[in-house]
Amino acid sequence: MGQLTMLLIKEIYYPILAVVAVPANIVTIVILSRGKCGLSKCISVYMLAMASADLLVIIINVIVYHNFSYNFPLSFLSYTPVCKFILYMSTAILDLSVWFTVSFTFDRFIVICCRKFKTKYCMERTAVAVITAISVLIILKNIPVLFAFETQQIINKLQWGCRTSAAFISSPLGMAYIWFHSSWGVWLPFAFIVLLNYLTVRRILVASRARRGLRGHTSENQSDPEMENRRKSIILLFTISGSFILLWLTTTVSFVTTRLTNPTYYRGDRTDPGYIATETGAMLKLLSCFQNPCIYAATQRKFREELKTVVKSPWTLVLRLVRT
């Protein structure tokens, strides 16, 4: 019963996620590309990179892997070379989404906590260089994934399907890469985001106390433009990084527990609590690729205005054509 329940949830969940997340990320990319949201060019680069990576995650990981490959097991997607490439791309793109979020968090940390370094680091060309370097490193880092899977069966001299290579996961190098890959993709970004947010919160509290002391008691009821701008900046930072932490928490905990109890765990019994936790974590971490458009719409007034403009544009064009 538990097995059927989890399979049913996945069959309903992933198509719905694809339907809502693809247009949401496309609209987000269009809005950010227009450059009318009142954001600096530096932060716009990071937000565009995150939106683009999230869109690719939804396309590759959700639509291609969880929907097409799962529901059409005898299609060309099941050819072993194609299957390996899909697994490689799904892993690499998810890494990009994660580390672009880390780079965004680090950039906001520099803005708030390192004022002297801010003018040198928080520039558009620096953001482009960081995004490019991360992309190249992740593409190279995930190449061993292509060797972690082998042909599942041969039909009419054609290689079909992919399964985890027992020789790879049982070898010292394979096990070392698995732990390195997991640390890189789950533990390190999770730890970095938590640490950077802690340091940022501490810096904000110290700066706020000092500023209130300088302004004195007589001006407590007056508005403080600098504090207001800082408040808007940290709301965006904390909502993005905080939701990331919450949605990736299940994956982080389940990976640690399953790896400690069974180092060769891959899928396991579908009625096993470890499998259920792993699949739940996978669904939640993919949901993180839909979170950012919702956060932008909820926290950024100019983004909401641009969203209304983009949504109205097709209808405005149709009305103009009808009137002419």
Rank of each mutant, 00 (worst) to 15 (best):
Q3T: 15
L4I: 04
M6C: 02
V27E: 07
I31W: 07
G35Q: 05
G38R: 10
D54R: 06
L56G: 03
L56E: 02
V64D: 04
Y70K: 06
P73H: 03
S75G: 06
F76Y: 08
Y79T: 10
P81F: 00
V82T: 13
F85K: 00
Y88W: 11
D95S: 10
F100N: 05
V102H: 08
V102P: 09
S103Y: 01
F117D: 11
K120N: 08
A127E: 04
I134M: 10
L137G: 04
I138Y: 03
L140G: 04
K141S: 14
S165D: 14
A166W: 07
I169R: 07
P172H: 07
L173D: 13
L173F: 15
W184H: 08
V186H: 13
L188T: 08
P189F: 06
P189H: 05
N197P: 01
V206R: 12
R211S: 06
R215W: 00
H217N: 12
H217D: 13
T218E: 11
S219D: 13
P225R: 01
K232I: 03
S233T: 10
I235W: 09
T239G: 03
T239Q: 13
F244T: 04
S254I: 04
V256K: 07
T257M: 14
R259H: 07
D272N: 15
D272Y: 06
P273T: 04
Y275T: 10
A277L: 11
T280G: 11
A282V: 01
M283T: 01
L284V: 00
L284S: 04
S288Q: 05
A297C: 08
Q300H: 12
R301Q: 10
P314S: 05
T316F: 05
R323L: 08
T324D: 05
